[in-house]
Amino acid sequence: MSAFNQFLMQLINGLNIGSIYALIALGYTMVYGIAKLINFAHGDIIMVGAYISLVLLGTGLPWWLVCLLTIIACAVLGVVMEKVAYKPLRKASRISLLITAIGISYLLENLFQLIFTANPKPYPGFITLPPIVLGSITISSNYYITFIVSVTLMIILNLFVQKTNMGKAMRAVSEDEGAARLMGINVDTTISLTFAIGSALAAIAGILYSNCYSPINPTMGSLPGIKAFIAAVLGGIGSIPGAVLGAFILGMVEAMTKAYISSQFLDSIVFTILILMLILKPAGILGRNVKEKV
């Protein structure tokens, strides 16, 4: 394969993993924006989505129904999580919230480990469209479907947040919860909706991820979860376009580092870039720099 084709392949790899990070990062950034919570359990929703869809596929339901049911199940899980664990702590310190989120993450991982054991389970890929052939490179359907689905969802989400009343309510609550309440916005519903959307996106990420990277296991969500969170911070946490941009940059950096620099030192390189980025531009690429009022 020529060097150029090699490069193109890495570009496609980067776009693929970037789109999955982006779907997860969107959930992180929306929840952070509105609840100021680093929802460490968010990555585990991917895992939950993967397992639920695995079980449903086993029952012989059509793929689109499996996807729909998985998305609904994860959205409900997100809302339940919010109501049971986060809502009572809304006035608590950030660190208490973080520990609770970690507790939920452990709970989900161990619950699924108990049900499905820790052994990896093969995931039957159901995205079986013909691959696209561009000259000498072949792009498998997993790759372009992941990319198309992610980008479409991001556009829809952005339109939703910018144009609809619910979306405006979400932005208002993340700007100033108290003022939003005074303006008659139902803050509780808005926060629940945010969790529902974030979790639904994570469910889709879970399905797409499993299609590309079978088999699945109960801790599969934690690493992409952390990476997606880093992407969200990189792009400017709280910002939707920022999360997407950050995710694609991260995916690209990962793919290129693996191919051209070192796969062993991948994590060190990625995390060093993150640290330097944050030091140079603390608010992220698209984040706003909020100065504390004195």
């Binding site: 664990a85 702590l89 520990i99 609770t100 507790g103 452990y106 709970l107 161990n110």
Partner: peptide, 9 residues
């Protein structure tokens, strides 16, 4: 994990 969540709550 359950103990942890309960304690925080």
């Amino acid at each position: 994990s359950v103990v942890l969540i309960m304690m925080m709550l």
